[in-house]
Design a protein around this nucleic acid. Structure first.
Length: 459
RNA sequence: GUCCCGGUAGCUCAGUUGGAUAGAGCAGCCGACUUCUAAUCGGCAGGUCGGAGGUUCGAGUCCUCCCCGGGAUGCCA
């Protein structure tokens, strides 16, 4: 016995495996004992289903094998004596525990670890949780990512593994540059105070910036197609030109941000602080163990992207396709995924797949993850399939010196729907703020609880 | 078009690597209890496991095809 177990399934399994190798020397050493709680309580406490599949493999009659197993089994310290009468049907073997055996097993449970043995060598598990975006309120999607992810993390912690939470904060790229630019101009105009900036204010500026940079290309196409006249065209053209100006400014801001230009970078840092302050507070309200130490934003990978992409190109893993750079994954050994993974746009910009590949590299090769789990909405499952396959193809998913890649998995959860069966939003189509949702939940619970008088004590 | 995830009792869902009679909660019905507006306690009833083939001693579980619902699908994240 490798450790003191309290689990009758495990104990009986050991005995049955011993009996199997004595009864049938041809049987594989790793034969599954197939012990489970009895389906029919009147026949016993536990049952063994191993005789049937094993007999098939060995070319024996299942009942004969069951008889031989029973002849060789030794469970005198655990169970009532097992005889041929305990073989039922095609070859089920029934066990009934002794009364005092149960007491002994329960005593073993009464330890600080509650019966869970610590792993001989703990593995490192990275759990991707939360995933907030700068300048945006958290919404119901973050609820699941945070709560489910943190629960997975706690489970592995309880099992004795080394757990590293990673909050992949969306803090980089053109959308963030747009708000940064917007906030900068609003602050310079004295319309917004950087000192008492709130997330609500940021959320508003984010949407405004998005709106300002949205071009009218589609509208102009329609004008041309349906010949709507020069007046409308001129109006749209003016709007479009203005949007393109805003977009150009945002792109310039992105460049400034990447160059860590002090003025712009200070604005960005302010956005970061305000958003993460609110986010971590919400994580705390949810009783998760997600902290600032777990934040590993997209910005932290910015420097590594070019290195990664160059490496992929140099080793022929990435190739050019219609001006963009892709990793092909359609061959069976790469995963047989028809859609190639896009890692660089035609304009030279990187995509979220690029960042995610760099993140896998860091998580596996620097943090030392044996397993990386992504708690993210199910709609992104193709994205993760691609990114995992690309990282494996590049060797980024393998720890230095390891022969096998680490386990990469997407713990997908579904979209939160409202009563109408559509994604949970307000009537006007806005996301519901997670902090409001929590306020209301607490409020309602308080009301329901407060209205009722305490029940008479029963326990 | 292709791919992914679902389809199990009226509703919401469990169902171990294929194993004995497919389960639970709620709703329903019968009864008990009785100050407390979903969630007191018994009991009963409730099923072509989406459909059709196939593999197997044995299929809700594995394979093939089809139907229905949702999602994704090269330059957003």
């Amino acid at each position: 016995m490798t450790h003191q177990t309290f689990d009758p399934v495990e104990l009986l399994g050991e005995r049955v495996r011993a009996a199997i190798s004595a009864a049938a020397p041809d049987a594989p050493d790793d034969a599954d004992a197939m012990i489970s709680p009895s389906k029919r309580a009147e026949l016993g406490d536990f049952q063994c289903n191993a005789a049937m599949p094993l007999a098939k493999r060995l070319g024996m009659k299942p009942r004969d094998l069951a008889t031989k197993i029973v002849e060789h089994i030794d469970v005198t310290d655990l169970c009532e004596p097992v005889t041929e009468a305990d073989i039922a049907g095609p070859g089920f073997i029934n066990f009934r525990l002794q009364q005092d055996a149960i007491g002994t097993l329960l005593d073993r449970l009464d330890s600080p670890s509650l019966g869970l043995p610590a792993p001989e060598s703990p593995t490192t598990v990275v759990v991707d949780v939360c995933g907030v975006n700068l300048a945006k309120q958290m919404h119901v999607g973050h609820l699941r990512s945070s709560v489910i992810g943190d629960t997975l993390a706690r489970t592995f912690e309880r099992l004795g593994e080394t757990v590293v939470r990673q909050n992949h904060v969306g803090d980089w790229g053109l959308p963030i540059a747009m708000v940064t630019r917007k906030l900068q101009s609003e602050a310079e105009a004295g319309r917004v105070s950087l000192d008492d900036l709130t997330l609500d204010e940021l959320d508003r500026l984010y949407k405004l910036a998005q709106h300002e940079c949205r071009g009218q290309g589609k509208g102009l196409e329609l004008v041309a197609k349906y010949n709507l006249g020069p007046k409308i065209e001129a109006e749209l053209r003016a709007m479009h030109d203005e949007a393109m100006e805003h977009l150009a400014e945002a792109k310039a801001t992105l460049v400034a941000l990447q160059a860590q230009e002090p003025a712009v970078h200070a604005i960005w840092k302010r956005i970061y602080a305000v958003t993460m302050g609110a986010c971590l507070k919400t994580c705390q309200r949810l009783h998760t163990r997600i902290t600032e130490a777990d934040s590993a934003g997209e910005s932290s990978y910015a420097e590594e992207l070019t290195t990664v992409v160059n490496d992929l190109v140099a080793r022929g893993i990435a190739e050019e396709s219609s001006g963009a750079l892709v990793v092909r994954l359609d061959s069976p050994e790469d995963g047989g995924i028809a859609e190639p993974c896009l890692i660089r746009k035609g304009d030279g910009g990187y995509l979220y797949a690029t960042t995610d590949i760099a993140a896998i590299k860091r998580r596996v090769q620097t943090i030392g993850a044996d397993r990386v789990i992504y708690t993210v909405d199910a709609r992104q499952s193709l994205h993760f399939k691609q990114v995992f396959a690309a990282a494996r193809k590049a060797g980024y998913a393998t720890k230095p010196g390891a022969s096998q890649p680490s386990v990469l998995e997407h713990a997908a959860f579904g979209t939160v729907l409202g009563e109408d069966g559509r994604p949970f939003k307000t009537r006007s189509g806005e996301n519901i703020r997670l902090s409001d949702l929590l306020d209301e939940a607490i409020d309602r619970a308080r009301q329901d609880g407060g209205q009722q008088e305490p029940r008479p004590a029963r326990r």
